[in-house]
Design a binder for these strands. Structure first.
Lengths: 148, 148
DNA sequence: CCTAATAATTAGGCATACCTAAAAGTGATG
DNA sequence: CATCACTTTTAGGTATGCCTAATTATTAGG
């Protein structure tokens, strides 16, 4: 049984708030593939921690604290999935892995990985070595440039 | 509260078996920073899954199935920590993050990351772009070679 | 305004991994 | 062989997050 963390609830609520300010129990449940009672329970806990404002039968809304956390989590998430995609991982798998890994990575590693992705993405030209790497994955051969 | 997974017990037992065949409850508890009753309980479960042979008051020993799993886990672990170290993460942090992440990464991503690390480590020369990257982390500047 | 459909909540449980305190087993020593 | 020190196990309980079934709110139609 896959256990979803509080953080994932925060991220989901954040995403759903793009459509409407108040997010309903059912929406969250559906999106997270979880039953409504689990959501009700979690919203209570998130409320206790000051991450959401929750009114029974009405819906939930992130507090500014919750929103800040959501943005941080989403950034880490994006860094990881971008990285995995650069390595040539299937988009869905990258997405899935990022979801799970993001909550377990230290701030330090996340920060470093972020710089790495940034370094690659803002390279003057699409770096040759990525091409070489993907080639290496498929054929096992590497192009023999000395500075590779 | 940090929740340790079954897999981490397997890895720990594997590591301790280098010193003696039978591994005792107390050794595992100490190494994992957990109390002995937790270990007893877990050994029972691992036994049920056919991963260890466990005799109360004597100790535990990995089955061949458990040992196979341990080797796989350790390989993934090493891939992740090597990668983080290449990015310039502190060894202890890399080690710690690898411990946690390894259990959450898909086989596909782990395999790809493995190839990536291998690609870097077996590069004809220590790749220039890693130096460039570490420089970029420290100074924010990148060396402007067109093929960067 | 009452009812039926829909949605959410409460109540009561399960699984996992952890803990403390108490009981039991093991082994060395007098 | 009895006792003490040490280790391990058992018993009972906590925290998370998830579930089903039953209850309660809300809302739309008649």
């Amino acid at each position: 049984m896959r256990r979803i963390t509080k953080e994932e609830y925060i991220e989901t609520i954040f995403a759903l708030q793009k459509d409407s300010v108040k997010v309903q129990t059912g929406q969250i449940a559906q999106r997270m593939d979880v039953k409504p009672p689990s959501v009700t329970e979690m919203l209570g806990k998130l409320q206790d921690e000051g991450l959401v404002n929750y009114e029974p039968y009405i819906g939930a809304e992130l507090t500014s604290k919750g929103e800040k956390l959501a943005r941080e989590l989403l950034e880490t998430h994006k860094v990881i999935s971008d990285f995995l995609e650069i390595l040539g991982i299937d988009k869905d798998v990258a997405e899935h892995d990022a979801c799970i890994i993001e909550h377990h990575m230290s701030r330090e590693s996340a920060q470093r990985l972020k710089m790495f992705v940034e370094f690659i993405q803002t390279a003057p030209k699409d770096p040759k070595w990525i091409e070489n790497f993907l080639m290496y994955c498929e054929t096992g051969k590497r192009e023999c440039r000395p500075e590779d």
